[in-house]
Amino acid sequence: MILSIQNVVKQYGKHTAVNHVSFDVPKGCVFGLLGPNGAGKTSLIRMITTITGPDEGAIYLDGELLNERTPEQIGYMPEERGLYKKMKVGEHLLYLAQLKGLSEKAANEEIKHWFDKFEINDWWNKKVEELSKGMQQKIQFITTVVHKPKLLILDEPFSGLDPINTTLIKDEIRQLNEAGTSIIFSTHRMEQVEEMCDHIVLINQGKNVLYGEVKAIKNEFKENLFRIETSDTLPGDFDKHFQVASRPDGAVVVKLDEAASRNNELLRYLIQHNIHITRYEEILPTFNEIFIRRVEETQN
């Protein structure tokens, strides 16, 4: 485990922002930290980055209780980003890299490496305020990864990025992940979760309401719905054998019980009746649906 959250509680006055939350982040995975606004995600991230400390419980990074060396092992890109507008790009990166524990020499080398990679060598002496928003985002990304953190925490990393930069940063994240960096990815964009994450935790009202592997969760939430598309008409007694959930645009969606689904009863029936099938699929819930369902279920 790269990160282990154990029974963590955080209170602000009377408000409990994080309420006995536990989960583990496996090493080398892309981990989705999900939840509606105000769920306690930021409070949790701030504790992981040691900006604040938990009132109860413990957090371990790579087996070690969080300590003063933790910040140097974590790269954090907050959703609300910012840089010193009047500083020169090169000096700014040097400053933040040194604050992350790099020596001046090492920081220089790392920054040069990223400048080459992004082909922005002529930006060194530009002031941050002279850069476009997209360019500033690139700099922000470099500041997050320049010290080669073990764990990268990205809060809505693609918000405000154009498609070209989104692809660029996505590729960088993948490369870093392949090289062994564990990544916590906090977002509202569920299609990104399905695309990028292998594990997730869903937080609502300060509590852990859903946690596990993406594939397993999708399986867990499936409702045994099957969609059939056919050029033939279905036999008249079809409705007596199967529960038809809906009939969208000429297709039929059937809800089976668990056993029937496992025994492929529907398929067998269709083949026996010589129905010509053009398409047959199990409808798995989207993460969006799972998210909304779980949040609504736990709202009370």
């Binding site: 701030r46 980055t49 040691t50 900006i51 910040p71 974590i74 954090y76 890109m77 907050p78 609300e80 980003r81 910012g82 840089l83 010193y84 507008k85 933040l96 604050l99 992350k100 922000q140 500041t143």
Partner: peptide, 17 residues
């Protein structure tokens, strides 16, 4: 200024307040 331009959250993840 640091608070308004949001650099502070980045800073806080590197140094103590």
């Amino acid at each position: 200024e640091e608070k308004t331009n949001r650099i502070v959250e980045v800073m806080m993840s590197s140094v103590r307040p």
